[in-house]
């Protein structure tokens, strides 16, 4: 439809009786829609009421999405229409790409994409497109969640390219927690708690340590490192020598990472004879290295005196 020409003048729509928006008297938070938006929505209500699934309905949804991409109803109706009329889903993806780039934070687009790609039964091109999206916003929650869906749906957990890609994301910003979470997802997520092969365990421990050495005051790889140790059911003491590189109670003025101190406290807490050392580490956190969380560090200290509670 040419711009400026409304549906009521369009012969292709002459059979449809639009349903204007019912708003009641004195509605709250009412929006003074443009005539164009208001009319398009009136026609959408009408075709939806008729359960009409058609090409023109598809065009109507495109028109409305361009004016308001955050309209879940329009997206749901669009995906139902695509299904009913057996539309070309490759064409849909082609149209979605620039639309997603234009509305970076919109999340309805991602769920819609998931429905389409699921039906296409192929992940081809998806990884590249996701990479393009993340170049604009590298912590976008919906994009990362979509990537996780993709990995699961198409069984990409052990695909070397997936690991390489996420490693590249971490290289680019070692503090990108979304990337760390994705690494966890592909390495551990497909395992259902099954034991980690020795080589992978070593690779992951080494990788997290390598990342910590780049920037020790970065919590992401510390969480990852400790997560792996826990997954592998190893004692935390396997991290003792490494942790001491960044925080050593013998040198309380030379602490390079509050997260190391936190880990050290837990390492000492695991050993019954070392509880005083654990307390010292927690004291350092509470009074000097992470004072905003003093209540928490003091709480952890109290736990040390309760024999049954192991943090």
């Amino acid at each position: 439809m040419a711009p400026g020409i409304f549906y009521h003048d369009d012969p292709a729509w002459s059979d449809v009786e639009p349903i204007p928006q019912e708003d009641g008297e004195h509605p709250l938070a009412a929006i003074a829609y443009t005539d164009e938006y208001s009319e398009a929505m009136s026609y959408l209500r009408a075709v939806m009421a008729q359960n009409e699934y058609s090409e023109r309905g598809l065009e109507l949804t495109e028109h409305i999405i361009n004016m308001n991409p955050a309209h879940y109803t329009v997206w749901l109706y669009r995906s139902k229409t695509l299904e009913e009329i057996g539309a070309d889903l490759h064409a849909e993806i082609k149209w979605l790409n620039p639309t997603a780039l234009k509305h970076l934070k919109n999340y309805q687009i991602w769920h819609h994409r998931q429905i389409i790609v699921n039906k296409l039964d192929s992940s081809e091109g998806e990884a590249d497109f996701i990479a393009t999206m993340l170049e604009q916003d590298n912590k976008n929650y919906h994009v990362w969640s979509y990537r996780q869906w993709l990995v699961k749906r198409f069984g990409l957990f052990s695909k070397p390219e997936e690991l390489q890609w996420v490693e590249g994301m971490i290289e680019e910003d070692v503090r990108n927690n979304s990337a760390w979470n994705h690494r966890w997802f592909i390495v551990m997520g497909g395992r259902d708690g099954k034991e980690l092969p020795e080589a992978i365990l070593k690779r992951e421990l080494d990788y997290a340590k390598y990342a910590i050495r780049k920037a020790p005051q970065n919590q992401s790889p510390w969480n990852y490192l400790r997560g792996i140790v826990r997954y592998a059911k190893l004692p935390l003491s396997v991290l003792k020598a490494f942790t001491l590189e960044f925080a050593d109670l013998a040198r309380p003025d030379e602490v390079f990472s509050s997260h190391a101190l936190d880990t050290l406290a837990d390492i000492y807490a695991e050993e019954n004879s070392q509880k005083e050392e654990a307390k010292k580490a927690l004291d350092l956190l509470a009074t000097k290295y992470d004072p905003i969380r003093a209540n928490y560090w003091n709480y952890r200290k109290k736990l040390l005196d309760q024999p049954e509670a192991v943090s």
Partner: peptide, 19 residues
Amino acid sequence: LGRYPSNFAAMDAARPWLL
């Protein structure tokens, strides 16, 4: 809670939240 101009069309599906 009052009236919004037309450029708030993106809030059209979020009016329950505004209330």
